[in-house]
């Protein structure tokens, strides 16, 4: 028996919205520890990794580890039937063919349940080494979204350069070129969540497809902060912490000069 209850059901809506344009089908693994998901986009250039700790749920029970093969577009359709203030409960048997989703309005006046058919999905699981990155940038997620959206109008590839002073996002295209530099905030600058913080061992410059960075920014509603982890010649990690429950991280392979 698997049962997971989230008082803030809208969180689940936001999570699926953040994934479904990048990944069509995915296995969500449920264990005593919580929910995890790892899935690549169709062209195997990027990967999305979701982690929701059991402690972040209001009720969580998982007697036996199970894998839920989900069509994310279809799950999104069902979650659209939930109100934004609804409590959402997920339920599945030990060897499930379906996932049951129950939505309860805050005053308990409306209770609905839906069953989503599960699929057998063969996926390739990648082992991601737990490495220390040379640069970690923490910045407001809305700011990152804006930069990606703005630069995508000009070109396809973004050069991200991280130095101690700041992070430079550069693009060039047929109409011209552009740069946006965000500088490290000084300690006195305003709110923690509005700050740009850079931890750097050595400067890093990498090239990335703006199209994929754009997919990642669908996670912006999940939190005020995004973290970018970069090291030379390896995929970037774009991590959105989800307050109190876990995180969603996207890995994107760099574009390489040949």
């Amino acid at each position: 028996m698997f049962e997971a209850r989230l008082t803030e059901g809208s969180l689940l809506k936001k999570i699926i919205e953040a994934i479904k344009d990048l990944v069509q089908e995915a296995n969500v693994d449920c264990s005593e520890e919580g929910l995890t998901m790892q899935a690549m986009d169709a062209s195997h250039v990027s990967l999305c990794s979701l982690n929701m700790r059991h402690g972040g749920f209001d009720h969580y029970r998982c007697d036996r580890s199970i894998s839920l093969g989900l069509n994310l577009a279809n799950l999104g359709k069902i979650l659209k039937c939930a109100g934004n203030d609804d409590v959402v409960t997920l339920k599945a048997e030990d060897e499930p063919d379906t996932l049951t989703l129950m939505f309860e309005s805050p005053n308990q006046e409306r209770i609905s349940d839906f069953e989503l058919k599960l699929m057998d999905i063969e996926t390739e699981h990648l082992g991601i080494p737990n490495e220390e990155y040379k640069c970690t940038i923490s910045m407001p997620s809305g700011e990152f979204q804006r930069i990606v959206r703005d630069l995508a109008v000009i070109g396809e590839t973004c050069i991200i350069t991280c130095t101690k002073e700041g992070v430079k996002f550069s693009v060039s295209g047929d109409l011209g070129n552009g740069n946006v530099t965000v500088r490290q905030s000084s300690a006195a600058d305003g709110d923690e969540k509005d700050q740009v913080k850079i931890q750097m061992e050595e400067p890093v410059t990498l090239n990335f497809a703006l199209r994929y960075l754009g997919f990642f920014t669908k996670a912006t509603p999940l939190g005020s902060t995004v973290k970018l982890h970069m090291s030379p010649d390896v995929p970037i990690v774009v991590e959105y912490p989800i307050d109190g429950i876990g995180s969603i991280s996207y890995f994107l392979a760099p574009k390489i000069d040949e």
Partner: peptide, 14 residues
């Protein structure tokens, strides 16, 4: 020319 690399070039299948 910039070429888009794949994740398999960096991470192993497990």
């Amino acid at each position: 020319v910039m070429t888009q690399s794949k994740l398999s070039a960096f991470f192993r299948s497990s």
